[in-house]
């Protein structure tokens, strides 16, 4: 009987302690997780005039808070991709000499369709849609991403 009473008290104190610990830790941990910042849902941005981009060149365009790489190929065609390397989050660039998309951080290489072709990147770059409207370049989020 004595033992049972002791066990019960231990259980009560132990359980209480655990509950106390959880009630202290929970707010602490949730405090450290940053709150979601409302981001304006952005579907397209104007990147500039067609003439501002010579063939065989690339430029990083701000798409809200994300960098997008706009490329004008040698043939004059426009393409846009997320500029965030799929390997470890660095920002990629267009290499005019090799005509590839290149990440300087770990020497990752993508072709002009955004496909990862050498180095460590595990996935292709996310493509964006490029439209030309009255000589103005408009970059749009691909529709299947909402």
């Amino acid at each position: 009987m004595e033992v049972n009473r002791r066990k019960f008290t231990n259980f009560l104190i132990g359980g209480g302690l655990l509950g106390w610990l959880a009630s202290v830790l929970y707010p602490l941990i949730t405090y450290l997780i940053p709150p979601k910042v409302e981001e304006q849902s952005l579907n397209s941005v104007k990147a500039g005039k067609v003439d501002d981009f010579p063939p065989n060149s690339g430029k990083i365009i701000k798409f809200g808070r994300k960098p997008v790489l706009l490329i004008r190929t040698e043939t004059g065609e426009f393409r846009a991709f997320s500029a965030i390397c799929t390997h470890l989050d660095c920002i990629v660039q267009y290499r005019e000499d090799t005509k590839h998309i290149w990440c300087a951080c770990h020497n990752g290489m993508y072709d002009l369709t955004g496909k990862n072709i050498s180095g460590p990147p595990p996935r292709p770059l996310m493509p964006y849609v490029v439209r030309i409207q009255k000589n103005e370049i408009i970059i749009e989020k691909p529709t299947n991403l909402g």
Binding site: I60, L88, C90, A104, H106, G119, P120
Partner: peptide, 23 residues
């Protein structure tokens, strides 16, 4: 935050062996 990573970028020497392995 909107510029591409510069060529020749590398970490401090004491992280280099891990960096190179990942590369």
């Amino acid at each position: 935050p909107f510029a591409p990573a510069p060529a020749g970028i590398r970490p401090e020497w004491y992280f280099m062996f891990m960096f190179q392995t990942l590369k």
